[in-house]
Every structure is written in C-alpha cells, then in structure tokens.
C-alpha cells in the first residue's frame, strides 16, 4: 500500500460520559493516527456510537480531554468539528430525505461556500460561480462512488443500501480529513458490503483520509482496519492491531457473553 501511517492526530484522554445514571463511557483513552483506519468494536450498547458522538461534538463528555492536531479541548463542538475537517455517517441513516442526491452532496460542502443569501437571491456573480465550481467537485465524488444514475433522485426513494452509500458520499463531499463511520455496512447483503469495503479502502488509500469506523462484522473489521479499540459496557477492554485484539481473552469473553 502506498499510504504511510502518520503521527497521532486525534488523542482522546480519559473520556467519561453519563446520561443521568447510565454510564455510557467510562474513562476511555485511545488515539488515532493520520491516514489509518481505526475500528471501534464491541457488543450492543457498549458505547461505540456515543464515542463517535463525543469525537465530533454531538455529545459533551463530563470528563476527559480531546486533543486534535495538538489543540486541547474539554469537548468538541459540532460546528468546530466540521470546520476542522470531521465528517461522518450515522448508524440510522441521517440523510436529507426530501432532497436529491446531488443536493445532499452539495449541502455536504456548505462550509466551503462563502456566498451569502443576497447573492443567492439574485443568482449573482459569486453565487453562480460557486455553485458551478462545487458542482464539479460533487460530481467527482459521484463518480468515485458510482452513483451517477441516481444524481437527481430524492434520497427518500432510494433503497437502503444505496442510501448508506449516498451518506458516505455526502460525508466525502466535504473533503474531510477524518471520516467517522457508524456501522456503514449494517443491514447490507454480502455484495453491498464488499462494495462498501472497497469504497472505504479506496477513500483511505487514494484520498489519504483518516477513518474511524464502527462495525459489527468481525471479518470486515479484521480485514480492513489497522488498529482496533474494543469497548464493553462503556469501558475499554482491548486496543491494538487486529491479531492481538482477536486473541485477547477479555475480548473473547465479552463476545462470547453476548448474542448478536
């Protein structure tokens, strides 16, 4: 592989998150290196999605610290995270259902557009130029993910597997530095999973995007990730390269102890 894994760009330190009495995350620390694919695994309710939500500021942890590119923060803020180059997909698809694929992707690039509503209203100079320039970028993403044929379709009418792909496309449209993917292959058939795997690897390899990925399919995780964090009941029980994690007795116990 051409890509070279770099230094730590995201460092999470002693993160604890509670919802009332529920301890979703307890004292969790791990880091993410530039250009790597970092997986988060664990049984249902382990706190994986909560972890992603902490990373891009949807949830604010009660304790801990987030260090991104050397900048220390108590918590992230969604807007700051988006500006810093985080993009994500959600476990339950969170597309803009009434909008076309094209508009979803264009919306994904909104932070890169600088024209204001008066310019939009008059469809004037910068507004028009920007619309064209970004359309070109968006078409690149559309090509990349093979979704040319559904460009103009409202996403609500697409089948589940394609919606998952469009959601990845919307995240990519933002040209992110770090991509957070919450179960991108859940509910897909084997073929769709293979496509999705290929896309994720291509993104990582060709665009150099760092990826944090939650996935239940062990085969997939072991295949594509560089390092894996294992959570169980909000605690970290394993962290390392796939082979180490696979043979970690605590991890094995956690997985044997729960059904999927």
């Amino acid at each position: 592989m051409a890509r070279q894994i770099g230094d730590v760009i995201l460092d999470l330190k002693n993160i604890s998150l509670r919802f009332g009495g529920v301890k979703a995350l307890t004292d969790i620390s791990f880091d993410v290196r530039e250009h790597e694919i970092r997986a988060i695994i664990g049984p249902n309710g382990a706190g994986k999605s909560s972890m992603l939500n902490v990373i891009n500021g949807v949830y604010r942890p009660q304790e801990g610290e987030i260090i991104f590119r050397g900048e220390h923060r108590r918590n992230m803020d969604t807007h700051a995270a988006a500006e810093a180059g985080f993009a994500r997909t959600f476990q339950n698809i969170a597309l803009f259902k009434g909008m076309t694929v094209l508009d979803n992707l264009m919306a994904g690039r909104n932070l890169k557009m600088k024209s204001n509503f008066l310019q939009h209203a008059l469809w004037w100079g910068p507004a028009k130029r920007e619309e064209l320039a970004h359309r070109r970028k968006v078409e690149e993403v559309i090509d990349f993910l093979d979704i040319e044929h559904i460009r103009k379709t409202p996403v609500g009418r697409l089948p589940y597997g394609l919606q998952k792909r469009v959601e990845l496309a919307r995240a990519l449209a933002a040209e992110p530095q770090i991509l957070l993917l919450d179960e991108p292959m859940a509910g897909m058939n084997v073929e769709e999973k293979q496509d999705m795997c290929r896309f994720i690897l291509d993104v990582n390899d060709q665009l150099g995007t760092t990826i944090v990925l939650i996935e239940h399919d062990m085969g997939v995780v072991m295949d594509i990730s560089d390092r894996v964090v294992v959570l169980d009941y909000g605690k970290k029980i394993g962290d390392g390269v796939p082979d180490d994690v696979k043979n970690n007795p605590e991890v094995i116990a956690a997985y044997l102890g729960t059904q999927h």
Binding site: V58, A81, A82, E83, A87, A94, L95, F96, K97, N110
Partner: peptide, 15 residues
C-alpha cells in the same frame, strides 16, 4: 431543507 429533513445531520455538516 437540511434543517427541515434532519437537523442533527445538518449541524454535523456545519450548518
């Protein structure tokens, strides 16, 4: 429309 359809996602993409 993004805010209408899914406000959390809208916020996450920077709206």
């Amino acid at each position: 429309m993004a805010v209408r359809d899914m406000d959390v996602a809208a916020e996450v993409i920077g709206i």
